[in-house]
Design a protein around this nucleic acid. Structure first.
Lengths: 221, 221
DNA sequence: TCCCGAACTTGCGTGCCACGCAATTTTTTG
DNA sequence: CAAAAAATTGCGTGGCACGCAAGTTCGGGA
């Protein structure tokens, strides 16, 4: 018979990954159903069957555990980007690689979106959420650099950073607006980025009517 | 004689602003000279001559106090942007408004930059630093929306967000690289953004040589 | 000018949390 | 199978955020 699935990783490694995953998952689940303020580190640890002290070996705060999903979500982006055909324009490659990460699961139901909205309302989570995106940004920048041959690191960083901006803006719009889909929005924003946002670039022909003070929504994220 | 400078703000308001400013300044100063871990909330409060409890009326963590300067730095951006001539292309306006915020003070000496680098090394600060930028991003998005007449909020957010990306990337490059100036970098990045980063857009003509694995620097920020 | 209500400060107490340290258990390796 | 390496755990400590209830300062109308 063939050897086991993927014994590439030492047992230790698998256990660590598993524990981390379980902790992050438990943290997210509990937070979604109780609200972050009603979840203690002890709760998460107990849920997974591990000591509270061990939780802190994996995450240095419960916020970090909750936001770990953001990082995981982008886990495959490096491979996805490097797997794009060699001749393809960079923006196309990036667009496909990013969109691919969010195409796996279909659109969830309203109730779930509502809970996500509540979740993101938690002030304490914002910082960690952004940090998680910054982490992703880092690997994205490295991957882009590798793909274009390692030239002009600054530009690679800028591209990675602005791409993550688009992801965040699309995401906020997704759980803020009732019903709008994530993928189309994200695709549109990435196209706009690649084009330098010419739609907005036009001068103010119609003068900035002070009456039309559209509030632009809350300061969410 | 003419009336006082700007008695528009009630005494209360001025005191609050002053206290906030003093606390933020003390937090930054102490952190720069001791490192964040050796600064307790009590130290900052004492420095300003206020109770620790009061500190928490202004900031909910010392990290937040340290990063308050980021927000203050952008304080004038709204006015600067709205003050640009009406016919000017949006990207030009934004570029000027942003650059203006960083043109006030000249380039500081090496020692200071080194301390900033140390400061930003503090893991605990990253989240708050990003949150501060997100705050700025919000007012920038609103201002842009007002200037273009309140249409397409998503694009306004995207632009604000990517502009802040450029600022962050330029900033990191400034204190990471020994000697490179902030303003030229920032200007270049903003131009690239406006053009859709065409410099990078070229396909991979020279194949991604795996030997040229330029490390792109640390995961800073 | 005086005075009352609103806003701000402060001390106290509480619950939670991050982390260093050292002992113990689990996994790896030769 | 034994010794080394790594992870888990309990314990203790220092610190922090915040609710609450005085006490204090400020603002504006009479």
């Amino acid at each position: 018979m063939p050897p086991e699935e993927l014994p590439k990783l030492t047992l230790r490694e698998r256990k660590k990954r598993e524990a981390r995953r379980a902790l992050a998952q438990a943290a997210l689940r509990l937070t979604l159903e109780r609200g972050l303020e009603n979840v203690r580190v002890e709760d998460i640890a107990t849920e997974v069957g591990v000591s509270p002290r061990t939780f802190n070996n994996y995450f240095s705060s419960k916020e970090q555990a909750v936001c770990a999903v953001v990082v995981d979500r982008h886990e495959g982006m490096r491979e996805a980007l490097l797997a794009r055909p060699a001749g393809e324009p960079l923006w196309d490659s990036v667009k496909h690689a990013v969109l691919e990460q969010y195409s796996r699961d279909g659109e969830p139901d309203r109730a779930y979106v509502a809970r996500i909205r509540e979740l993101m309302g938690q002030l304490a989570l914002r910082g960690e959420f952004l940090r998680a995106h910054a982490t992703v940004e880092q690997v994205l920048a490295e991957t882009i650099a590798k793909r274009v041959g390692g030239v002009d690191h600054l530009l690679c960083r800028l591209m990675a950073s602005s791409v993550e901006s688009a992801v965040r803006v699309a995401f906020v719009n997704w759980f803020t607006s009732e019903g709008e889909l994530l993928l189309p929005t994200l695709e549109r924003l990435l196209d706009e980025l690649a084009a330098g946002m010419p739609t907005l670039t036009g001068g103010t022909e119609g003068k900035p009517d002070p009456n039309t003070t559209t509030p632009l929504g809350e300061p969410l994220c």
